[in-house]
Simulated scan of single mutants.
Amino acid sequence: MEHHIKNDFLRISVKQTGAELSCIESVRSGLSYLWNGDATFWPNHSPVLFPIVGGLKNNSYFYKGQSFSLPRHGFIRGNTNITLTAQTENSLTFGLVADEASLMVYPFQFEFSITYTLFANRLVVSHLVKNTGDEDMFFSLGAHPAFACPLHAAERYEDYYLEFDKPETDSTWVLSAEGLVTEESKPTLHNTNVLHLSRTLFDHDALIFKNLKSRQVSLRSTKSQQVLTVQFDDFPYLGLWAKPNAPFVCIEPWLGIADSVETNQDIETKEGILCLKSKHHYSAAYTISISE
């Protein structure tokens, strides 16, 4: 089941399964900005990542000496227990509450919700995590939206580039064959705010940035005027990724990252993990803006 809202600028669709954004379309131009989910390349659009981002070493972690298993990016993605909890003319809210199935793999009582809200030419994606249990809760969350690239048939992937809002000098972190973060970094940005897309840019998996000064990045073309901007003030990490030769690019605001190769697998000391006190809540939002 999909749910739809629109305003004078944008029309969006969200799948109830996984609370996954599945379409961002311009009302004025008819252009579709989100990846269409063609399974030839990648059958997703914009998975929601919770309570972890990336993969775990051996797909498992330890909490208080007990071992638990979680798939890459957690259990919101593809989850059929998601419910639509609220809808207005310009917003959709989806939720998941801890149950017997979640407690088997994640021993914390929680309420998770995600809200998609349209404001003119902007889509704000807001997350709210509540710790409803009696002890500290350890979690992370992130976004994985894939954007169509190129937008126009006459363009090439190489016509596109990412523009950061500040000049950057930063490295990305090399991933192992299992998708874990190694201690090896690769210089990627050298006093520039531009990263050109190419078919080889993601040959070695995602680019993971830990130290960006920028809080927004725009997808632009040298051949057309449309600009898509992702603003991620609440997210310290940024991932960039695409499948080989796929006509999309993922711009991924993250609160955490995959396990390191050297991890002891203790969730309490995992890099990027957050500790939420009992009966407290945590919120984080990012924004997708379309300029035509």
Rank of each mutant, 00 (worst) to 15 (best):
L162G: 04
P47C: 05
E271Q: 14
P71N: 14
P145F: 01
S278V: 02
P71E: 14
P236Q: 09
Y116T: 01
F62P: 06
M137W: 09
V129K: 06
N7R: 08
T83F: 09
A98D: 15
A154M: 12
L96F: 09
G37H: 00
E183T: 13
D234G: 06
S260V: 13
E178P: 03
M1Q: 05
K210T: 12
L189D: 00
S13E: 00
P107K: 02
Y63I: 13
A285I: 05
N191I: 03
V249L: 06
S198H: 07
V217C: 07
D38G: 00
A206H: 01
N193I: 04
S13K: 00
L189V: 00
L56C: 04
E184G: 07
I257T: 14
H204I: 10
F232S: 07
S278F: 07
Q87Y: 03
E2Y: 00
G74K: 11
S102R: 03
V105T: 08
V249C: 06
P43L: 02
W241G: 01
Q16G: 04
K279F: 10
D99W: 03
K6R: 12
L31R: 08
A153P: 07
S69I: 04
A206W: 01
F138T: 09
K270V: 11
F112N: 01
Y116W: 03
L207M: 07
N59A: 15
K223H: 15
H152C: 13
Q109C: 10
N44Y: 01
N193E: 11
S29K: 14
D203Y: 10
L56H: 11
K186Q: 14
G18C: 05
H204Q: 15
V217S: 10
Q231L: 11
G133Y: 09
L103M: 11
I76Q: 04
Q225T: 15
A39N: 12
A146P: 08
K130E: 15
T93K: 01
N191A: 11
N121R: 14
F202N: 04
I251G: 06
L240F: 08
H196S: 10
Q225S: 15
Q66W: 01
L10I: 01
T93N: 02
L274A: 13
S198A: 08
N131L: 09
Y61G: 03
E252Y: 10
I251T: 00
G272T: 10
V53E: 08
R220V: 04
I290L: 07
C149H: 12
L103F: 11
P47D: 02
V27K: 12
K6C: 05
A39V: 06
A39R: 11
N191L: 05
P167T: 13
F110C: 00
S60E: 07
Q265R: 15
N193W: 10
F50Q: 03
F139H: 13
I251D: 05
T117A: 06
Q225K: 15
D8L: 11
L92I: 00
D266T: 03
Y160P: 02
G74Y: 10
T40D: 10
S283K: 14
Y61W: 07
G142T: 06
D38Y: 00
A242D: 07
P43A: 09
E155R: 03
E158I: 01
I5E: 01
E100M: 11
G54A: 08
F94Y: 05
F147M: 04
V227F: 06
F232P: 08
S176L: 05
A120T: 14
S26G: 04
H190V: 13
F202I: 06
I267V: 14
N58P: 04
A153Q: 13
T169M: 07
F209H: 08
H190F: 13
